[in-house]
Each structure stands twice: as structure tokens, then as C-alpha cells.
Amino acid sequence: MMRPAVVAALAALLALPALAAGEGAPPRRIVSLNLCADQLVMSLVPPGRIASITWLSRSEGDPDLLPLARRLPVNHGSAEEVLAARPDLVIAGRYTTSTTRALLRRAGVRLLEIDPVQDWDGIRAVTREVAAVLGEAERGEALIADMDDRLASLALARPEAPIRVIGWAGGPTDVPGRDTLFNTLLETAGGVNVGVLDAGRGGFDVERVVLRRPQALLRGVSYGATPSLRNEAARHRLLRRLYPQGQLTYPEALFGCGVPQAAVAAQALQRSLRDIAGSAARR
């Protein structure tokens, strides 16, 4: 931990931009410590006002935002990087490194913590909250309006019977639960997660997946699809045999972050689900 004198000096340095900007003015040096917050910040404010985002955004999230993310400075969540960026606002998730949070409080930097969300209402609430703090309420509403449009088309294009899927990434605990954003998106797109019933009792394995007889398997992809063990069981011979076309992927970040772009991801999923239903009907 840093000595109090050093912290006081840094705090004085940090206070300068806030003083310069004046109280109540929209923040001009925003640091985001959370992937979901990154997405919101990049959607709401011009790049000049973003001091740094997390390194994760360089490979995750909304594909349209990737070029921007690659141009912006990044941080790895450490206190040093945050303070070096001299922010006047730091946005983080509820589960950020507690040391960092404690330090920021001591240095007097404004910290906004956003909660994870589980449904579209939650997304609207968080988007509005962040937009207000960033001073971009209008942009926020525009994003929400776009999202609502997409939700309307999603509702129209829903298949009659929900498509039975299992969301499984290959590990024993990799099944998204009942009250998650993943479930909301899935149901909006016209699917139903039949794995939910068993999740949490002894773990999931290939036997369980197969015996539930889903129409398709859904696998979350993250971190630029860098290799990991989670894929191994999901590529089991038996699954390849039973589901030659039925292994779908979804971008994990967009299915876990409460951002308006989730509606885009839901639309992509719906298209895949309709293909599955279509090919099943033809058989």
C-alpha cells in the first residue's frame, strides 16, 4: 500500500482535472474497469473523452466497436494504471478489485458501479443511469429506442414453438442458470433452455446433454476464441455425431453484458434458431 503522503499528493493531482472541468460538468476523462462498462462508454461518448478501457474490449463485445477499442488506451484493472490515466470518473462492475476501489475512494475520484442485469428492463435502467452520469442522456435514449425496435422485430419473427436448446460450454458448471441475461436473450430469440432444470445438481456432462434431447447446442465463445479446455468435452465424438449442424455459438460478452447491443446478438441467434427449425421441418 502506498504511503499516505503519496496518496495525498496523487489526490491533489487527480483533483485538478475535476476542478478544471468544474463541478457538475460531464466527465472528460473516463476510465472503465469493466468489459460491459467499456461497451456502454464507447457507445455513448466520443473517443476524446475516454481515458482508458479494459484490455478485454480489444477482443470481446460488439464487433462494430472493435476498431475503436483497438485505438484506445487500455488498462488491466490495476490501481497504478487507473491513477496514471488521471480520470475524473471511473466506471466499474460491482466485483472490481477491492484494493483499487478503496484507493479510488481515498483519492477522491468519482466511482460509478454498475450491476449485472438479467433482462431488457435492466438494460434500459443501466443504460439510462450511465448515460445520465456521462452527460449523454439523449444518446442513451437513442440506443434504447434502437434496441426496442429490434425487440419488436424479434417478437414478430419468433417461431411458434420455442426451439429446445442446451447452452453448454463443456465444463461441469458451464450451464447458464434460469435467471440470467442469457436466458432472457434466448427466450426473446425464440428458444428455451432445457438444461436449466439440471444445472446445479452434480454438474453437466455429455450424458445429460444427450438425454435431454435438445434440438441444438449453444456454446459461448469468448476471448477471441483462444483455446481452452472447455471446448474439449463439447467436441466429443458423440455430440459431433448427433448434432452435425446443431452446434451454435454465441458471443459470450454480449450475452452477459447488459448493453443495448445485446438485441443485435439476439437477432443473430434468432436467425440461427430459425435455420435449425427449418431444417428440422424439412427432414
Binding site: G171, P172, D205, V206, S222, Y223, T226, P227, S228, L229, R230, E232, A233, H236, R237, L238
Partner: peptide, 23 residues
């Protein structure tokens, strides 16, 4: 390369024959 790695390696090292195949 990704944050799940530490968890996964330690889980793998615990040893298991679940979900293995003929390959």
C-alpha cells in the same frame, strides 16, 4: 491466454476420466 485458464488447469490437474471418447 484467457482468465479461465488458471481455473481450468487446476481442475484438469485434479484428474478425471469423465466425458472422454474413443479418440
Amino acid at each position: 491466454p484467457n482468465p479461465y485458464a488458471a481455473y481450468e488447469i487446476s481442475q484438469w490437474l485434479l484428474g478425471s476420466i469423465a466425458d472422454k471418447s474413443w479418440d
